[in-house]
Design a protein around this nucleic acid. Structure first.
Lengths: 172, 172
DNA sequence: GGCATAACCAACCGCAGTGGTAGGATATGG
DNA sequence: CCATATCCTACCACTGCGGTTGGTTATGCC
């Protein structure tokens, strides 16, 4: 598995916050009940999102969390990176401060390892897919799926499903 | 980290086999010495490649391993899948026999989880990058890097590096 | 003020997988 | 017969993951 459940829970949490209006904060307990997730564990997850500046919080009674920015301006790359750390396909991939991706073994500049070429392509594929998906898309998708329980299979999901789910599941 | 060292070692092993002519088999010990990897662990790695039909073997003295097919016909997706198992971004992704990708939780067909949309895109990005890279490309890349130790930085790596390394490191 | 609510924080813990080792059995060429 | 080398099974230390426990602090409401 590529991502841990921290990413799964955190993304669901962000979607849940995106479904709420940012006027009144949403408590973690409400999200935990809605998604069936352990509250104490969600605290650790949301702490990462808060430290990354993706959500804001208010303490005390009627406190809770809300999105720091509109969902349209949040790329899922930021969310996943906050939850999982740097997206690196392999141990030897380290990021320096210039955002370049290096390979730590074979420190001599002569013979660079050829695997780097492969892992770099994989990483680029992941990052591209995460950067071109916004939180707003997922929120809209969740609205659509819980609004239409029976699937007309033709009139529904015109843009999102055609480029995403359809790419992997040709005949759903 | 997305892939374990099994993938790293296995890919290096495949590249090493691609550099040799398939006439005489290459022993694991020679590969272990060339790459600085533990021999006993390489045995477990190569066993997966053999069971996947990617390499063939001969026992006894002067035995060893060679590619079952020319490197041009081996997509890295097969190699990585043999080494790491099914490429799934998240625990809940299970493949049935029709190659479709499903989500195991929320078994009621009504409210499908919106995270599925994201993970499906990520998986598609990974699979695409792995399927469009052949072993022959990596072998050629390794030939180029150990032949040209000093990098002219402009005349070199015209096609491969432009689409792969250049996508992640804009100003290398 | 007091109490319920709810964010925040820091340990702790069982479990599974990773990375590797140990020791052998089997096959083959010289 | 022996060196080489594949093949196979079991074992093991360590790490990270998923989750729990038990608090402390801050805030709204009666």
């Amino acid at each position: 598995m590529i991502f841990s459940s921290k990413a799964e829970y955190g993304v669901r949490l962000m979607i849940e916050l995106g479904r709420q209006s940012p006027e009144h904060p949403t408590s973690l307990k409400a999200i935990a009940d809605a998604e069936g997730l352990p509250l104490a564990y969600l605290e650790q997850v949301v702490a990462r999102l808060r430290k990354a500046g993706l959500v804001m919080s208010a303490r005390g009674a009627h406190g809770g969390y809300w999105l720091a920015r509109p969902a349209e301006d949040i790329a899922m790359h930021e969310v996943v990176q906050a939850l999982e750390g740097a997206i690196a396909p392999m141990e030897c991939f380290v990021h320096d401060h210039t955002q370049r991706v290096l390979c730590s073994h074979e420190p001599d500049a002569g013979r660079g390892c050829a695997t780097k070429l492969l892992w770099t392509r994989v990483q680029a594929g992941i990052v591209r897919s995460l950067q071109t998906t916004t939180l707003a898309e997922l929120v809209e998708f969740s609205h659509r799926t819980d609004r239409v329980p029976d699937t007309p299979a033709g009139a529904q999901a015109p843009v999102v499903s055609a480029t995403a789910v359809g790419a992997q599941a040709p005949a759903a």
